[in-house]
Each structure stands twice: as C-alpha cells, then as structure tokens.
C-alpha cells in the first residue's frame, strides 16, 4: 500500500484515496507534430523499474493534482511536490540520490 503526502492539503493519503495519472513531466506533442512524435507522447512510456515520477490526484480529498517520486520496484516514496513544475525540484532529486547513489536523471 502506497502512502503519499498530498502537498496541497498536507494529508498522508492512502493510495485508495488517490487516482493515478500516469507518468509525470511528459512533453506534449500536439497539432503540427509528426506522427512519430505524437505516438510517442500518447502511447510510448519507458515503464521503468526503479525511480519513477508520477502524477496523482487526491480524488477523495482536496481534489488536486500533485507529483510524486517513488521506486516502482520497492514502492519506496522519495517525496511529493506540486504539479506546477516541468521538472523534479532539487530537494526531490537530492532525496532520491541519497537513497540511490547510482541513479541519474536521464
């Protein structure tokens, strides 16, 4: 069972209070992009085993979206942060590196 601290309301929310939103920090390819770019944006995900950035919505609570960094293999949560950013903030990256020295943001 995953527990995320919602950065919007401060609640330690159980996974069942949340709605998953897939991978975070996707770059959108919309009108004018090539078919390959659009396919990649829409369907192709690395599905990593290890450190993963995700979107979640506190659906049964404050209703807000937020982002989370966790490990898909151990379910360890490194931290959560507001959704209004296009890349993981430094404190989250530091928290991940403290636990996973070999990891790098690709």
């Amino acid at each position: 069972m995953l527990t995320f601290r919602c950065p919007c309301c401060g609640i330690d929310a159980c996974e069942t209070e949340l709605a998953p939103g897939g991978e975070a920090h996707l770059k959108r390819f919309g009108p004018g992009s090539s078919d390959d770019e659009f396919e990649g944006y829409l369907f192709l995900r690395p599905n990593v085993r290890g450190v993963h950035f995700e979107r979640w919505r506190h659906a049964m609570g404050c209703g807000k979206w937020f982002l989370a960094a966790r490990c898909t293999a151990t379910l360890e949560v490194f931290g959560t942060y507001p959704a209004q950013v296009s890349a993981p903030p430094p404190d989250i990256l530091a928290a991940i590196r403290a636990k996973r020295p070999d990891w790098s943001l690709t």
Binding site: C9, T16, E17, M60, G61, C62
Partner: peptide, 22 residues
C-alpha cells in the same frame, strides 16, 4: 475510511473516502 481517525483533532475537517464514495 483509510483516514487516520486517531489523529483527527477537533475543529479539523477531513475529506476522505467512505468505502466507495467521497
């Protein structure tokens, strides 16, 4: 509910899940 009811103080509203509904 999955909310931590033991930690819910007076004067605080906890929005949560009541089995299948909000």
């Amino acid at each position: 509910t999955p909310a931590d009811i033991a930690a819910l103080p007076l004067g605080e509203m906890r929005r949560t899940r009541l089995q299948q509904v909000a």
